[in-house]
Each structure stands twice: as structure tokens, then as C-alpha cells.
Amino acid sequence: MSESAVEIKGVSRSFGKTIALDEVDLSVSKGSVVGLVGENGAGKTTLLKHVLGLFKARTGTVRVFGKDPVADPESVLGEIGYLSEVRDLPDWMKIGELMSYTKAFFPSWDDAFAEELREMFELSPDQKVKTLSRGQRARAGLIAAIAHRPQLLVLDEPSSGLDPVVRRDILAAVIRTVADEGRTVLFSSHLLDEVQRVSDHVAMLHLGKMLLSSPMDDVLTSHHRLTVRFEQPLDSPLKIDGVLRCEGEGREWTVLCNGDRASVEHCIAQLSGELVDRAAPTLDEIFVARMND
């Protein structure tokens, strides 16, 4: 039995001249919550489609619970709950019909849990999908995705365009609950504060390349934000090894660095800089710094 829920090795894909994925590696451990972040067009959805078997890997391999999702979609998708970014649920279906339709595919479908979720999300079984708001659609999609208690929950931009209340439902009530039951969650998002709050592991994609894939704690502790005041105003940002981003003007600058903090502080001291503040950066700041690096 494989230890990883998802194992992606050396996967590349291009659409015409656009490279969507370039030799991407990603390993998702069982029971973890992995946040996949990146700019628009970074390749997040393409990567998730490889996991679902909707794209056949041209190079490299994709394994979900040790199985090839293209060769064995029945078995792999049977273990997955998926919420699509576009929420393309059939407009004409009623919530009750959607639930009984989805139930037909999953022997492990839990009627009581589905009903509990439906009541929690305040959806009526007689409501048609086309009459639902964006947030309600996301909630309906979530019921279909999690009521069979999947071993792997794949969420593609689950909170895009949703209000804070629905986002809270999805992230707090769903992702953590699933993870607390020892199951795995892989989700992509633009909302980095939420990714930081719920993820154990973060994977950062940029122009199809995997910039970073590490446990969340490691990412946060290996980056530092330093506020520095110099004796004389600086004309241009600092260029020191380990500094990802340097912002400011005149005498006061904010530096975001990665790795050996002492070495960076030493370099700053040599330039007559005084360390005013030292703090842990947010994932959002790390992301912006990495993208601009």
C-alpha cells in the first residue's frame, strides 16, 4: 500500500507554445492538507486535472493511492471527492436528485451525513441547481464531493468568488473536518491567508514550475521579515544573497529573506544598517516575494 495519497513525478504539459507544467514533482502524504498556490495560469488546474485522470501525463507519472488515474478511473475516482472551479453541476437537477444521482456511484455514500450537510448548508431538496446562488452552488457541490467520505478531497479554487461566510463553511467546516478524520485534502486557492490557516503543506507553482513544496511550518519559519534603518538613505534596494524582496525608500527598508537569517543580518550590519524589527512573514508576503524573485 502506497504511503502517499498522490505522487506526481516529472510531469510536463504544454498547450501550443504555452508551457502549463514543466517537470513538476509533488508528493501528498496521506492525512495531510496540501494547499496549491500560484498566479492565474500557473498550472494549478492542469495539475489537478492530471490527478483526476482528465489529462494523460505526456511525460512523467501520476499515481493516486498507487494507481494510475487514466488506466483505472473507476477505482481512483471512487476514492476522490472533487469540487470543480466552474461548479458545473447540471442546472436542471434538484438538490435531492443530485444527492441520489451521486449516491449511485459511491457505495460508501453516507445518507445521514449528506442530510446533515444539506441541513447545515440550508439547502432544500426541492431547490433546482439553476436557482442557487454562487455560494449555494459551492455548498451543493461540496455535499456531492464529501458525503461518500472520500479518502482524497480535491478542491479547485473552492473559495473563489464566495463571501466570507461560505468560505468559512468550506475551509473550517469541511477541510479541517476531513483532515481530522485522517483523510487527505488537496486544494488550490488564491486566498493565501486561508491556505496558511488550514494547510499542513504548501506547493507553489509559477509558470508551470514547482517553485516550492514544503511543510507549511518549514516555509513560515525559513522566511524572515526584517525592518532595517540605515544611517544614509539608499538609492536602490539591497542585493544580498538570501534576500527575496526589499521594499522601502530613503533610510527605512523592509527585507524579506530566506534561509540563513544571521548571514543576512551580518551583511546589513556591514552596510551600517540597524535592525528595527524582526517578524515572521505571512504566506501572502512569501508568495509575492517568490513570484517577483
Binding site: E74, G78, L89
Partner: peptide, 19 residues
Amino acid sequence: PPGSRERITMFLATSPLSD
């Protein structure tokens, strides 16, 4: 649906069934 970028809806494509 017409005009969609997909050639098969994700809803149908992700049904846990063999081809």
C-alpha cells in the same frame, strides 16, 4: 455546454466509472 472550453463536463468526466 456550447461555448464551454471543456469537451465533456467535469461533472460527467469525474464520475467514478470506467470509460
